[in-house]
Amino acid sequence: MESLNVFAARLWPTENRFASGHRACQGCAEALAVRMIHGVLGRNTIVASATGCMEIISSSYPDTAWTVPWLHVAFENAAAVASGVEAGLKILVKKGKLPKRKITVVGMGGDGATADIGLQALSGAMERGHKMIYVCYDNEAYMNTGIQRSSSTPFGASTTTSPAGSLSVGQSTWKKNMPMVIAAHNVPYVATVNPSFPFDLASKVRKAQAANGPAYLHVYACCPTGWRMAPELAIAIGRLASRTGVFPLYEVENGKLHITVPTPKLSPLKEYIQPQGRFRHLDDATVAEIEKRVEEEYRKLERREGLVL
């Protein structure tokens, strides 16, 4: 059955759940990913959003971009709020106070809201086994507050709190591996998705929706403003991110790892790094060092293909 779970252009949902007119920057691949994911999830969806780019650009009162029920409480608690919505609906159905219907509850947040300040609430929600999807939109820094580093910022990226300088390479730590942190919670479905690979994204969203328990999607979300690059390159950079091995596309379904977009021959990292101003200061030796690490990580993933983690 797995091989039949393919997506094609004519299957793409035409209704838009995330309306146009919101205030996202030009070339924001995060807003694009939100639109794609909620297109696939459909109308019977309730969203709990963390504070962050997607919240402020979509909900400036009295406007809203959301055509599905949407709730924003705070920054670090979207997973807890979503778990509450799920628990609340479930008990109301059990007690006969609401009719039984198929409703997908989604928690969403950026990389800061997920990998840093919201990690505890997310871990709790995943561990408790709520039937919900948590989506991390990873643009690799605190973009909403002005491009500060997070634990999801890649090595060498210059941000406003990990600036490149005569004594600094920029971000001096390696990106936290959030999908594997969640996979370690033994939830039924974890996947990395990238809006530059829409069909791969759609089939994973469907699987997350069908999972019998918590599901986690980690979304590559190119941010031209924060990455200091041309907005029209957002989709191309996204493709390169997966083809260079920087952001491999895989899933962990009931513990079993599967690379969904295999890339045996990785593209040169320079192609990915060169258009992005945040890496502009890196010398060839540092790029080579990053490339070596990216390749090591990718091969490590390849060696685990098909294994139950």
């Binding site: 409480v73 608690n77 709020v81 509450g84 919505v85 799920e86 609340g88 609906l89 008990i91 109301l92």
Partner: peptide, 11 residues
């Protein structure tokens, strides 16, 4: 936070 979610769901 969970209480906010459950109460907003109508519980």
């Amino acid at each position: 936070s969970v209480c906010c979610g459950t109460s907003a769901a109508g519980a």
